[in-house]
Write a protein that binds this DNA or RNA. Structure first.
Lengths: 336, 336
DNA sequence: GTGAAAGCGCTAACAT
DNA sequence: ATGTTAGCGCTTTCAC
């Protein structure tokens, strides 16, 4: 508010002068590295506020090797999971008066490049959402004992980094149990194509859970394929050209489920009365569809808090955390 | 590749020693601030590579006041426009061996907070996608003559920052001309609700262009509302309960258009034979829908290059650039 | 608990 | 064109 606003920027020296203490004291008070909270502390804070002081992060980083930045690498921002994670991570990072450095890389080479760039900026921690099939173990190992790294999802290839994965098995179990409770007897599964979140493993889990719940499925119903609306549409049309059809269709992505619902509509079938549909990833489309779609919500908040906790614990003690997603039950799967 | 890999990090002094030159020369060579490219330059680069040297950005920033970072503030990552911009911006920033600092803020207070945080980090430039109705003029003005700021979209409230806006009028003209060419006579418009990209102005442009092209519309057809699938669905159902209906429906967002297409399907109408549909923002859903959807693609690449160009020109010379989006013609609007 | 002073790694000014 | 040197603003010993 002062009239010196146009002056470049107040430094710690000016604050110290105004508060009539040493720069060391200012530094200690402002960074909370001081025991008492007495009159001196108040004076320092007052002076800092008056001068509209904020630390010079470059100087601070140079001296202390703490940059107050967290690096995040994602395959693309136009992906529900990455976007959801970004939205969940940013406020937490920022509330800690840290800053988020973002790297985007779809292929292995670009991801490696971004991780290199971020690490040479000396981020205090790195979170990487690995894309389908990328092998980042070498670059991870390169920095593993300098910077705490957290790999989110994907296949773990480096055992020197932390890993936060999503417990898809629990999710699948929740889906199947929920469907069984709604009176479903037979289920189809439209899997994803990419290896990213282990489509194949999910597929295996589906079979296990279906059997465990005493439901039935048919190998002709279940196919791998793209995560697109038209794929869901096509598969469903084909499904109903065959002899029998399931009571429910579980999809590896909301987009597929959306195509399924469109096709069912076209076929004159009602969701959820005639057939139930479950999506995956709880994208905006799930709550916007008609009827609203039951989906599986990745545990964004927990992924973020666990990742930051692992980063806090520093490099060199890699551990693996598996988090259960949440089944968001909406209209498309409920008995009416 | 050297066996000294585990050693913390090579500094410029070690590079200088190995290359047998001064640190100043190393700095000059590596930053390209040197005229000749002789044997000395080669020696320096070789030494740097051998020691796996990379500059300490904190030290560099402290000394030179250039941080090699660009700040970006968006309302949310779960928004097609912001995600598209992010994906377009990141590689360009990175290729320049700069880094992207991201701030996310949905409401005015949070946006201001993020802009403050980024600017006190002394980013070399700030790009802000302003959210609906937020007034950021004060915080913009606070930094306007220190840091080059580019406002993308939204309503311009500060005339001390650069502005990159999307020429919606040209987009609307292209849509209406295209529809007229496809034999359309009457058009409905489902507008957005939020003030963000000037729904009202777009609405006015729609009327202007419809009249200019000699087409007709009906005030009962055109409504403001949410950018959701169900809104598009409901509006369409209601539309066809009335006496007449249009040959085409233009929507302020792909999501709305998607709901429209679902409703038309339910009503037994064929797109594009019976009625044509045009969306907006060219989200992934536009190319994944059935039939594929004609939409308007924001000029991401141009927004990015213009923004960076304006940042390059430094603070204090605010200018306004308006960029025409591209009409992506797909099946939903073409004569068959 | 506080202050004085060293120095993080780099670049810009100045001198050669 | 290159080298020498000061110093960016901060944190952290080290004294007291």
């Amino acid at each position: 508010m002062a009239n010196r606003a146009s002056k470049s920027q107040a430094s710690i020296v000016e604050v110290a002068t105004l508060a009539d203490v040493s720069t060391a004291t200012v530094s200690r008070v402002l960074s909370g590295r001081r025991t008492k909270d007495d009159e001196i502390a108040a004076r320092v804070r007052k002076a800092a506020a008056e001068l509209n002081y904020s630390v010079n992060y470059a100087a601070s980083a140079l001296r202390s090797d703490v940059t107050n930045t967290i690096g995040l690498v994602i395959p693309t921002a136009s992906d529900n999971f990455s976007a959801g994670l970004l939205d969940a991570l940013e406020p937490i990072v920022d509330d800690d008066s840290r800053q988020l450095l973002l790297g985007i890389g779809a292929d292995e080479a670009t991801q490696i490049d971004r991780i290199d760039a971020l690490c040479s900026r000396k981020v205090d921690g790195l979170i990487a959402v690995t894309s389908a099939g990328a092998d980042l173990s070498r670059v991870f190992d390169k920095y593993a004992d300098t910077i705490p790294i957290v790999q989110v999802g994907g296949r773990q290839r480096s055992f020197r980094t932390n890993m936060v994965s999503i417990d898809e098995n629990t999710a699948m179990e929740a889906i199947i149990r929920h469907l069984a409770e709604q009176g479903v007897h037979s289920v189809a599964y439209l899997a994803g194509k990419e290896v990213s979140f282990e489509s194949a493993e999910l597929f295996a889990m589906f079979h296990t859970q279906v059997r465990a719940a005493g439901l039935t499925t048919d190998s002709d119903w279940n196919r791998f394929g793209d995560r697109t609306v038209s794929r869901g549409f096509d598969c469903t049309i084909r499904l109903f050209g065959e002899r029998g059809h399931p009571d429910a269709i579980v999809c590896a992505d909301d987009t597929i489920a959306f195509g399924v619902m469109m096709a069912l509509h076209a076929l004159g079938m009602n969701v959820p009365e005639d057939i139930k549909v479950v999506g995956y990833n709880d994208s905006p489309i799930a709550s916007a569809s008609l009827p609203t779609m039951t989906s599986v919500r990745p545990p964004y908040a927990q992924i973020v808090s666990e990742s930051l906790r692992l980063i806090e614990s520093g490099p060199g003690h890699p551990s693996h955390v598996s988090l259960p997603p949440q089944l968001v039950v909406r209209v498309s799967s409920t008995r009416r």
